[in-house]
Write a protein that binds this DNA or RNA. Structure first.
Length: 465
RNA sequence: GACCCUUUCAUCUAGUGGCCAAGGAUAUUGCGUUUUCAUCGCAAAGACAAAGGUUCAAAUCCUUUAGGGGUCGCCA
């Protein structure tokens, strides 16, 4: 049975790096018909917030990654942890340390000055005397004093860290509240995890957790430490590099399938394949193929993927999603035509919504440069004649091709180039020189609105003179 | 500073000793399609961090150097 987990601490929004490790864990569980569990690491009572928690859950919902069973809250499991603290104390595998914070600081400064890796010196490890007054002790676990702590990482291979680098770390604070490395090991074991996929930044926590597994006699899961995502310059990803909050991608108009596709290809690949449906990701993903090195965040690729998913999305679904971006065309009788005319012009949902609005809303202003260029010479006359022709043929206009025929007719009648009518017509309809195909636009708008826009543009032209 | 991890085109990556004078994708540039823009198609340019080994043969194995990242809490 494959069991994986995601274990966020509710202190902020869900970061895209976190989403990637969650995705890897989720895919691996799904692939093996196992379980993907959610655990909330809220042992630091002062830093938790309900808003952060709901933001994280909301992000999971948006990308469509569900978790199995109920979320586990560490803050509700203190009695379990306490039991294990007592057990270790009774077995002599942990001990009370009465060192004051001042003493600890002094020790660290001395070590730092000597150029050593700072660590607790074990002075209370075998303490048998009378404890000093006025110090509420912490509980420390006895870590091995010699040899190496070795584990096999599914991504990096064998990791060997000298025991001298791992000190007798605190497992319970002076107030009795247990600490991260202790509760993580206990919960991972108790939750029956087979595979732990987490960020590289936890690599050095693993030997510590090994000490806990060893002391408690728990079986270790497989660990996979995934390297970080950096910005395009290879530096740590910060808010200045663009969106780091998963939900911000929704606001910016990205589709969850594009974001997941983008993230799954960051550090993982399957030959030359770039596009992965969720089903393909599930069937192909294997954490043993995750790259060792960190990867850089690259917005261009995400944008390309997003455009791809927009272009290939069924129209009814696209229309439903568009309502979240302020465009309501679900019941428009030209829905298919509208989307066909615009979906190749929007790389994000925001851009797509904008493209649609440009067609659906009568222009209130005109691009100055484009208007000037388009309305040179005979443009007004040509448009007037075109309007008349439209009105005459109104009854027979049932498809974009019919509208195209009308334009063609004008072009032939007047022996002009297509641009002579195309340019002023486009500016009249859209307010600018670029955009969707004229035939489609007119079909969407219908004869009356098309003529209305032409007349408005002509009026604007007259006003200028 | 110490310890650990890492290093293929600008970016994501393929590559597990001979199939590699290194393949794909994005971005870039050019050409074509298109009434415009976009899409699409075709093409170009573009990398094994450096130096030493091992080997008949190295992007692939080893060593050193350099760059990048992570960690050194009674945070998680």
């Amino acid at each position: 049975m494959t069991t994986t987990r995601f274990a966020p601490s509710p202190t902020g929004y869900l970061h895209i790096g976190g989403l990637r490790t969650a995705l890897f864990s989720w895919l691996w569980a799904k692939k093996n018909s196992g379980e993907f569990l959610l655990r909330i690491e809220d042992t630091d009572l002062s830093r938790n917030s309900d808003e952060a928690l709901s933001a994280i859950l909301q992000a999971f919902e948006w990308v469509g990654m569900g978790y199995d069973g109920d979320a586990i809250y560490q803050s509700k499991r203190f009695d379990i942890y306490q039991k294990y603290v007592d057990q270790l104390l009774a077995e002599g595998k942990a001990y009370r340390c009465y060192m004051s914070k001042e003493e600890l600081t002094t020790l660290r400064e001395t070590q730092m000055a000597k150029g050593e890796r700072t660590r607790y010196d074990g002075r209370y490890r075998d303490f048998k005397g009378t404890p000093p007054q006025g110090v509420e002790p912490v509980i420390r676990i006895k870590a091995p004093t010699e040899g190496n702590l070795i584990f096999n990482d599914g991504v990096k291979g064998e990791i060997c860290i000298a025991s001298s680098e791992v000190d007798d770390f605190v497992i319970a604070r002076s107030g009795g509240v247990p600490t991260y490395n202790f509760v993580v090991a206990i919960d991972d074991a108790l939750m029956g995890l087979s595979d732990v996929i987490r960020g590289d930044d936890h690599l050095y926590n693993t030997p510590k957790q090994m000490v806990v597994y060893e002391a408690l006699g728990f079986k270790m899961p497989n660990f996979y430490h995934v390297a970080m995502i950096n910005n395009e310059q290879g530096k740590k990803l910060s808010k200045r590099d663009g969106a780091t909050d998963v939900m911000e991608y929704k606001t910016l108009g990205y589709l969850p399938e594009a974001l997941l596709n983008f993230l799954v290809r960051l550090g993982w690949s399957h030959g030359d394949q770039e596009i992965f449906s969720i089903e393909e990701m599930i069937s192909l993903f294997d954490p043993n193929n995750i790259n060792k090195s960190s990867s850089n965040y690259n917005l261009d690729k995400l944008l390309w993927l997003n455009a791809h998913y927009i272009k290939n999305m069924p129209h009814d679904k696209l229309a439903t999603l568009l309502s979240e971006y302020g465009v309501d065309i679900g019941s428009h009788k030209q829905l298919d035509l509208i989307l066909n005319a615009t979906k190749e012009r929007g790389k994000t949902m925001v851009e797509l919504a904008n493209q649609i609005n440009i067609i659906l809303n009568t222009p209130t202003t005109y691009d100055a440069k484009g208007f000037k260029k388009a309305f040179k010479g005979e443009a007004t006359t040509i448009l007037n004649d075109f309007s008349t022709l439209l009105k005459e043929e109104e009854a027979s206009l049932e498809s974009p091709a019919d509208y195209h025929a009308i334009i063609q007719k004008i072009v032939e009648q007047k022996s002009i180039g297509f641009g002579k009518i195309g340019m002023p017509l486009r500016v009249s309809l859209l307010g600018k020189m670029t955009g969707s195909g004229l035939d489609e636009i007119m079909m969407i708008l219908g004869v009356d609105e098309t003529i209305n826009r032409i007349e408005k543009a002509i009026a604007f032209k007259k006003q200028q003179i």
